Amino acid sequence: MDESTPLDTQVTAPFGNFAEVRRAVDADLVGPVAAALKQWDPELAYAVRYVDTDPELADTAVFCAAYDVPAEASANCVVVAAKRGGETTLAAGVVLATTRLDVNKAVRGHLGARKASFAPMDTAVGESGMEYGGITPVGLPAHWPLLIDAAVAATPWVLIGSGRRRGKLILPGAALAALPGAVVLEGLAG
């Protein structure tokens, strides 16, 4: 987007009840998330919304109730440790909040792992550079497999972590599916 393109001055969220909504590119985001947005097509990056929220209300069910967000428009990013032959691969799975990531069948099978489980909190936080409870697929390490449930990719606007427990991102589901290395899978959620 060039500087001569007119921009609306009112930034709104497509759903929910938030006191503060701004463009994510104008928000104070954690390093990997901010860096990832700078790499996006400027028009798409400019469409991503950041909503400031209370970190004490970050857990999905509580958050949806407090901010009037439909659970079917909220997604969770789960870090998984997949093991095969003594090697561990970290991966991320993104599913709607109304479902659960199928780690034992879908993730393990797609990654060809002998065993897959939720990554330990210290590992997820240390390797992602993000806060636990706020990990987002935007800005994850490029070498991690990124698995997106087809229902997330098909959601017009989806709410996801911002890299911190405080604040969330709202963006088109198709934007998550277009992240580098992302693979959209049917049946990723159970």
Score class of each variant (00 low, 15 high):
Met1Ser: 15
Ser4Gly: 10
Pro6Leu: 14
Pro6Trp: 05
Leu7Phe: 14
Thr9Ile: 14
Gln10Glu: 15
Val11Thr: 03
Val11Met: 06
Val11His: 06
Thr12Val: 08
Phe15His: 02
Gly16Thr: 04
Gly16Gln: 04
Phe18Asn: 02
Phe18Trp: 09
Glu20Leu: 13
Glu20Ala: 09
Arg22Tyr: 10
Arg23His: 08
Arg23Lys: 14
Asp26Lys: 03
Asp26Trp: 00
Leu29Pro: 00
Val30Glu: 04
Val30Ser: 11
Val33Pro: 05
Val33Asp: 10
Ala34Trp: 00
Ala35Asp: 15
Ala36Asp: 09
Ala36Pro: 04
Asp41Glu: 14
Asp41Cys: 07
Glu43Pro: 03
Leu44Phe: 12
Leu44Ser: 13
Leu44Val: 15
Arg49Trp: 01
Arg49Ala: 01
Arg49Pro: 09
Val51Asp: 03
Thr53Cys: 08
Glu56Gly: 15
Leu57His: 14
Phe63Pro: 01
Cys64Thr: 14
Cys64Ala: 15
Cys64Glu: 10
Ala65Ile: 14
Tyr67Trp: 13
Tyr67Cys: 00
Pro70Asp: 08
Ala71Pro: 13
Ala71Phe: 13
Ser74Lys: 00
Ser74Asn: 15
Ala75His: 03
Val78Glu: 03
Val78Leu: 12
Val79Pro: 01
Val79Gly: 01
Ala82Pro: 08
Lys83Met: 09
Arg84Phe: 06
Gly85His: 07
Gly86Val: 03
Ala91Lys: 02
Ala92Pro: 12
Val94Thr: 13
Arg100Ala: 13
Arg100Pro: 05
Leu101Asp: 07
Leu101His: 04
Asn104Val: 12
Val107Gly: 04
Val107Cys: 02
Gly112Val: 00
Ala113Ser: 05
Lys115Ala: 03
Ala116Lys: 08
Ser117Cys: 05
Phe118Ser: 06
Phe118Tyr: 13
Ala119His: 00
Met121Tyr: 12
Ala124Glu: 10
Ala124Cys: 06
Val125Asp: 10
Val125Tyr: 12
Val125Ala: 15
Ser128Lys: 07
Gly129Met: 05
Met130Tyr: 11
Tyr132Leu: 08
Tyr132Asn: 07
Gly133Phe: 09
Gly133Ser: 01
Gly134Asn: 08
Val138Asn: 04
Gly139His: 06
Gly139Asn: 07
Pro141His: 09
Ala142Asn: 06
Ala142Leu: 12
Trp144Lys: 05
Trp144Glu: 00
Pro145Met: 06
Leu146Pro: 03
Leu146Arg: 14
Leu146Phe: 04
Ile148Ser: 03
Asp149Asn: 10
Val152Ala: 10
Ala153Cys: 07
Ala154Lys: 11
Thr155Val: 12
Pro156Val: 09
Pro156Ile: 08
Val158Pro: 02
Val158Cys: 09
Leu159Arg: 07
Gly161Gln: 01
Ser162Leu: 00
Ser162Tyr: 05
Gly163Met: 12
Arg164Gly: 05
Arg165Pro: 02
Arg165Glu: 00
Arg165Leu: 07
Arg166Phe: 11
Arg166Leu: 06
Arg166Lys: 11
Lys168Ala: 05
Lys168Trp: 11
Ile170Arg: 07
Ile170Gly: 00
Ala174Arg: 09
Leu176Asp: 06
Leu176Asn: 00
Ala178Glu: 12
Ala178His: 02
Gly181Ile: 08
Gly181His: 06
Ala182Ser: 11
Ala182Leu: 11
Val183Glu: 11
Val184His: 05
Glu186Lys: 14
Gly187Trp: 01
Gly187Ala: 12
Gly187Pro: 05
Ala189Met: 08
